[in-house]
């Protein structure tokens, strides 16, 4: 087993384990911590795949930004009440069905994938321009329109959120 393989295995195991922890913890803050761990290990997997830009974005945006806000909100709400509530709602039957469906889909995909040729190797990094530039080119040239549309959508959502809080405080 090579070093990258071992790293991958460790990281994915961590990701799986912490994901399970996220949904089983009673304390929401603990859940959030495990979610951070999961996100970090996924980020690590990106790094193993030499997608260091994706890794950096994962860390900065998800771990460093979104999860901080997440925790921020969690600290504001009443954690004690949340701890006394039931952990799983009664629709667990539906959830189980969905999970099985998803699992089947995944297995099918893997099985089908065996026949396909291997995914092309990631562009070698380490030297400039590297894949960061490639991502930039793709985002702002090839997929310019979708990116702009997505950002517009986010802007609308943001403005909406601001307006909603404003009304709340009147």
């Amino acid at each position: 087993m090579t070093l990258p393989q071992a790293t991958f295995l460790i990281l994915s195991a961590t990701a799986l384990l912490s994901s399970v922890m996220v949904i089983t913890r009673r304390n929401v803050v603990h859940s959030a911590i495990w979610l951070i761990v999961a996100l970090l290990s996924v980020g690590g997997i990106y790094l193993v795949l030499q997608a260091e830009f994706l890794f950096a974005v994962q860390i900065i945006l998800y771990v460093g930004g979104i999860m901080v806000l997440f925790l921020f909100v969690l600290l504001l709400v009443n954690v004690d009440v949340a701890m006394r509530q039931a952990l799983f709602s009664r629709q667990w039957g539906v959830a189980l069905g969905t999970a099985i469906l998803l699992l089947a889909e995944l297995v099918y995909g893997l099985w089908r994938g065996q026949a396909q040729p291997a995914i092309a190797a990631a562009p070698a990094s380490g030297v400039s321009p590297g894949n960061t530039q490639a991502v930039g080119m793709a985002l702002y040239q090839k997929y310019m329109l979708p990116v702009e549309l997505a950002s517009l959508l986010l802007l609308v959502a943001m403005v909406g959120a601001v307006i909603m809080t404003q009304k709340r405080f009147e």
Binding site: A56, G64, G126, G130
Partner: peptide
């Protein structure tokens, strides 16, 4: 000397906030 140097630094340093938030909580 990673070619995403500044991103890496921004990312890692933003993790430090967890120490503060979680410690306070």
């Amino acid at each position: 000397n990673p070619n995403i140097g500044i991103l890496l630094i921004l990312g890692l340093s933003s993790l430090g906030i967890y120490g503060i938030i979680l410690g306070g909580w």
